[in-house]
Simulated scan of single mutants.
Amino acid sequence: MADEQSFPALVAAQLLDEEGHFTDAFEEFIESASSVLVVDRLEMDEAFADPLVAAVVVAAVVDRLTDNYFAVALPGKNACTDAGSALLAEAGTLLGAQPFSDELQIIDNALAAPEEAAQRVRSRLRSPSARAGSTSPRATTCCPTPTPPPGRPRASPSP
């Protein structure tokens, strides 16, 4: 890779061996994947720069560009270099990504959990009461969206 400091270079260093094959650690981490989609940049107008909105955008990208044989790599908590990567890290958390390292989290599309998480996120976005507790990514970087206060109904996936 030309830019050794880039997120795709970091992903390649952690997931691929010197011959370009998946590492044993990655093979053990995922159920079944023959390809990896690396989501490394996100730019949103400030009015839409919300972790919930970012999660819905990422879910749509993943749905359109992948199938069950893909893993999706997103920045982890220690790879946040700007507001976009912070939104991606929070979106990954909301979509059920699992930490592979401090810098990298993975969504394994072979599992049902990512689709279920995407449905929950879409449902939360449609529910104004659930969004009322959302935080601005400018105020909190790489942190999950807070849960609603006790007694406030949570959005559930649509059938």
Rank of each mutant, 00 (worst) to 15 (best):
M1E: 12
M1F: 05
A2S: 15
A2E: 14
F7W: 08
P8W: 08
P8G: 07
V11E: 09
A12R: 11
L15S: 14
L16N: 09
E18R: 11
E18A: 04
G20W: 02
H21C: 09
H21A: 10
F22G: 08
F22D: 08
D24L: 12
A25Q: 13
F26Y: 11
E28Y: 03
I30C: 11
I30M: 04
S32I: 00
S34W: 00
R41I: 00
E43K: 02
M44G: 10
E46W: 14
A47F: 13
A47T: 14
A49Y: 00
V53P: 00
V58S: 02
V58E: 00
A60N: 13
V61A: 11
D63E: 11
L65G: 01
N68K: 09
L74Y: 01
K77Y: 05
N78P: 10
A83E: 14
A83Y: 10
S85W: 04
S85N: 08
A86L: 06
A89G: 04
A89W: 02
A91G: 01
T93S: 14
L94N: 13
L94A: 14
G96M: 05
Q98P: 08
Q98R: 15
P99Q: 15
D102C: 09
L104F: 03
Q105L: 09
A110L: 02
A112F: 11
A112T: 12
P114L: 01
E115M: 06
A117S: 12
A117M: 11
A118N: 07
R120W: 12
R120G: 07
V121Q: 03
S123D: 12
S123W: 08
R126L: 10
S127N: 13
S129N: 12
G133E: 10
G133P: 10
T135C: 09
T135Q: 14
S136L: 12
P137Q: 01
P137D: 03
R138P: 00
R138L: 04
R138Y: 09
C143W: 13
P149G: 09
P150F: 06
P153S: 10
P157L: 03
P159T: 13
P159K: 14
